[in-house]
Design a protein around this nucleic acid. Sequence first.
DNA 1: AAACTAATAATACGATCGTTCGGTTAGTTA
DNA 2: TAACTAACCGAACGATCGTATTATTAGTTT
Lengths: 211, 211
Amino acid sequence: MTTTRVDGRLVRGDNTRRAVLRRAVDIASVDGLEGLSIGRLAKELEISKSGLFAHFGSKEELQLATIRAARRIYADAVVQPALAVEPGLGRVWAMTENWLDYSQRRVFPGGCFFAKTSHEFGSRPGAVREMLATVYREWIGLLEQTVAEAVSAGELDADPADLAVELNAYYDAANLASLLRDDHDVIYTQTRQLIRSRLESAATPEAPLPW
Amino acid sequence: MTTTRVDGRLVRGDNTRRAVLRRAVDIASVDGLEGLSIGRLAKELEISKSGLFAHFGSKEELQLATIRAARRIYADAVVQPALAVEPGLGRVWAMTENWLDYSQRRVFPGGCFFAKTSHEFGSRPGAVREMLATVYREWIGLLEQTVAEAVSAGELDADPADLAVELNAYYDAANLASLLRDDHDVIYTQTRQLIRSRLESAATPEAPLPW
DNA sequence: AAACTAATAATACGATCGTTCGGTTAGTTA
DNA sequence: TAACTAACCGAACGATCGTATTATTAGTTT
């Protein structure tokens, strides 16, 4: 068996690391970054606890790596497909559709990974909270910029910072409702309609409506 | 020393129970209902672990009792003062002010107890999730009814179920932002303004604006 | 083939978890 | 005062937690 080297790392070890993190994000989305225990993770993957541990060096490093892995999955599911749509109201709507799909399809089995973990660590000082806060600011900033492009294009008339916060509020509310209620279709359908209404009230007469 | 009896329970034991739950809601709002450990709770209160445990019989019962205790505190802080305001747009606004104050004043040190624990247990089947789901439905129902009263009074023109969901979305978004950002004043001021705007857009011309 | 390195494993550590059991204290009732 | 009960405590249980140490395997390099 041959292995190649990437950035001085053996591919064998990197595959393990990837498998660990793929499982880790799923576990954490259900049981949190604290409920994500090293022993359980090793048992489910059928590898040794100490071998797994060696990849990260500490629980906190595992948690940080898990957040980075979740961020990549999130970027692939929500952000990148929206960036393929040209700037303007269409992209704002694409971001909305992608986000609600991401929550509804359960890209993470426990719903939005970041809603879950941000609430878990939001009032616990430390590196984990700092990273989650950074991801939060990144995301709101991206949403704000997306709205700002639509304003520049003359398709929306709104304060980008305000509308970004509002859109994000709708997203998270739908995600939380889906955790506590059984009628998921109702929730996401209602949320889509509410956001359409909100965007219509901010759209200029010339704006082509993307729905 | 004399003790009296209430509902067949000695007051001595009930005082202990109350003290335990008062501390429990604070811990859970920061570290979650799972991070709420019996040993830690006993140590902080300087009582024995087994004596504390005997009051509840199981960890899950402690968690359920903690949710009930938090619900009472929430009712006192948010709901009851709003019910003192006469039905209509004024009461809707009172609910909003009380909620944002409840979050901002940190009635629970970790922010909204229910945002925290609902995210923690939302994807974990069991009695705890069921109780949190019930509290959620209660709360949204109350909000919806409050809006409906304002509609009946001719002060708002909106679908009560929709507007209730929207208001709750704004509340939770402010709470989460306050967990991840440092500029709390900005967050709550912005949220108040956003909700005022939303309510003005739904208010009838005759409605007296309560702000 | 020998030397070397990265990846993984075996084992054990002290701490803490929820829970159980048996005893002790405090206070009521007969 | 004696009997009784509710409240509380001390100690221990098996399990699991994160982490450290030491060994072994797999694969590369010379």
